[in-house]
């Protein structure tokens, strides 16, 4: 089994997280924003798995399973919101839904 150095894995996780964040902030389409959130969640999961392997603990993988569950729930709610948004405004542009602005 090849032992990857922790730094490399964490760098990958960080890179994925930042990419997801940039995608979230840059994309206006609600679907792409959801995908970006998924990327960020998985980056966090990767970091947990790497940490678990570094300290030889099962907690990291338990945490990843937990994140998967949260992600599933998040997507369910997110897709419902996307549907609602489409039905209400006939668009997926989240910037159009700003009627709560001060």
């Amino acid at each position: 089994m090849i032992q990857l150095p922790l730094v490399q894995v964490l760098s990958l996780a960080g890179l994925l997280f930042v990419m997801g964040l940039i995608g979230l902030l840059v994309r206006r389409n609600a679907l792409f924003m959801l995908i970006s959130v998924e990327v960020m969640l998985n980056a966090a999961g990767l970091a947990f798995v790497a940490a678990g392997s570094r300290w030889q603990q099962a907690d990291g993988q338990v945490m990843f399973l937990f994140i998967l569950t949260v992600a599933a729930a998040e997507v369910a709610v997110g897709l419902a919101l996307v549907l609602g948004l489409h039905r209400q405004l006939k668009t997926l542009d989240t910037d159009a839904a700003d009627s709560l602005g001060g």
Binding site: L24, L25, M33, D95, D98, L100, G101, G102
Partner: peptide, 9 residues
Amino acid sequence: RKTQTGRVR
């Protein structure tokens, strides 16, 4: 009030 734009991003 200016910070509350209503935009989710």
